[in-house]
Design a protein around this nucleic acid. Structure first.
Length: 235
DNA sequence: ACCCAGGTGGCCC
DNA sequence: GGGCCACATGGG
């Protein structure tokens, strides 16, 4: 099977099994951005505790964090792990947000996708996945998020041997953005907006990954079982 | 007592 | 480009 066809098939299989995810968990775009930084190499459960701690103290806002002492911030987000470095990353981010956009989400949203992406990537502690999560889920920009689960699926479903973030991102964007595919979705009564499809695909991959495509895979009953097996062997 | 989680940056080759 | 390490909590 062609790789773009495989990626499209994975979208359908995951959507059929798990249903629409309507992701990212978070009440506001700013909360999504904070969550994106806190969840780096950390389970979402721990991030929830850190975010709850911020909310309880009414500190979950760009200006509150901007003015908060970094050591205190670190203590508050402690359950999220790597708390010293994450406190410094959050401070760097809200500083950028204040200086570049007056801490105004609408101003940030008006920014050009790839210009903004480069600016985010220039910040210490914001790498590709975090930047793209912010762009896709907080700002509704059409960019696909590649994470460890995505790379595992790419390898196990034998879509590509590449481990290159940008290459995999572009491959998913191209495949999920094909006219015929989006038209098929529309015909099946599924929302075919590009941003929505990118958001759902990444969310579905995470949902699947938490259950099946883990570091040590659990393939039995996984909706992608057949696509990852060649002659009964996991790729 | 391990292993793992929705990464990133620094350093080395 | 790839390999290894530090960063740290909480759950299995």
């Amino acid at each position: 099977m062609q790789k773009s066809r495989k990626i499209q098939e994975i979208f359908r299989l995951l959507l059929n099994r798990f249903g629409p995810q309507h992701w990212w968990p978070g009440d506001t775009p700013f909360e999504v951005m904070v969550g994106a930084i806190l969840t780096q190499q950390t389970s979402w459960k721990n991030v929830e505790k850190a975010i709850r701690n911020l909310k309880e103290r009414d500190l979950l806002s760009p200006l509150e964090i901007y003015h908060l002492n970094e050591r205190k911030l670190a203590e508050i987000i402690r359950p999220a792990g790597f708390y010293n470095i994450k406190a410094s990353r959050l401070k760097a981010f809200v500083k950028f947000f204040a200086e570049e956009f007056d801490s105004d989400m609408e101003k940030m949203k008006k920014s050009d996708l790839f210009v903004l992406r480069e600016k985010l990537l220039s910040l210490k502690g914001i790498g590709r996945e975090t930047a793209d999560s912010i762009l896709l889920y907080a700002l509704d920009k059409p960019i696909f998020v590649v994470d460890a689960y995505t790379k595992r699926i790419v390898h196990r479903a034998d879509i590509s041997q590449s481990n290159d973030y940008e290459e995999i991102r572009k491959m998913f964007e191209k495949s999920l953005g094909e006219r015929n595919f989006l038209a098929e979705l529309k015909k099946s009564g599924i929302k075919s907006d590009l941003v929505y499809v990118f958001q759902e695909m990444h969310a579905l991959i995470v949902a699947e990954g938490k259950l099946y495509c883990k570091k040590t895979p659990v393939c039995s009953n996984c909706p992608l079982e057949n696509i990852c097996m060649k002659r009964g062997v996991l790729q």
